[in-house]
Simulated assay, not measured.
Amino acid sequence: MGLFDRLFQRQGVVGIARDTIDFALESADDTHPNEYMGMLRGTPAKHLGMDQRGYVITDILVIPGTRSNPVSATVDSNMIPNDMRSLGSIHSHPNGVLRPSDEDLGTFTSGTVHVIMGAPYGRNDWRAFDQHGEYRDLPVLDVDLEDHEEFFDFTQADIDAELRRDK
């Protein structure tokens, strides 16, 4: 465990939420034949009612300005949030190969989990790797995730009130 992890008591990743990996596989299929790319974020397992330490991967952030084609995806690293919930990356290989390329290994420097999904993007068409490109176990967990739809539930009056608060 590095100094940063010890200082902030960062815990390991205990798994990925089933809804999260299902969302990622569906997104990769929708993006096919281009690569899909996102960043993994987590929620403390205790916040999900689990009796263990560590994080569960619950969110995938698609970074603004991400460009992709059938052989690569490029993310503007300045747009990637750097916080305690950032756990790694996820991307697809439209050719179906479930192992990191040399280019992938060069991007595995941030985070501890990197997921590669391969066509045809079925439930078992993905693998997790550590920052060195070594396979790692990543259990799929059936956890209840919060519904974030209320985030988009606002009116013009709510916007006006927020703008007045900022002045």
Rank of each mutant, 00 (worst) to 15 (best):
R127S: 08
F154Y: 15
D160A: 15
L3M: 13
G49C: 04
V115I: 15
L87S: 00
A161P: 04
V140H: 01
T107P: 00
L3Y: 05
T20C: 15
G65Y: 07
F23E: 10
D5R: 12
T66A: 10
G38V: 06
P139C: 08
F8H: 12
D158P: 08
D51V: 04
A73S: 12
K167Q: 15
V140K: 08
R41K: 11
D160C: 04
D51S: 14
D158E: 13
N34D: 15
D59A: 12
R6H: 10
M79D: 08
R41C: 02
L7E: 10
R123M: 07
H114N: 10
R6Y: 04
L48K: 06
M79F: 10
M37A: 10
R67D: 09
G122H: 12
T107K: 04
R165I: 01
E26A: 15
F4M: 12
S77N: 06
L7Q: 06
R127M: 11
V14F: 00
E103N: 10
F152A: 14
A17D: 04
D153P: 03
Q52Y: 00
I60S: 07
M79G: 06
R127P: 00
D147P: 06
T107S: 15
L105H: 02
G15S: 06
A28S: 15
D83T: 01
R123E: 14
G88C: 04
L138F: 03
I116K: 01
V113P: 00
D147G: 07
P33Q: 10
E103P: 01
T31F: 01
L105A: 01
M37R: 14
A45F: 02
S86E: 01
P94W: 03
F154D: 06
P70K: 04
E150R: 12
D166I: 14
V97D: 07
D59H: 15
H32C: 02
A161T: 09
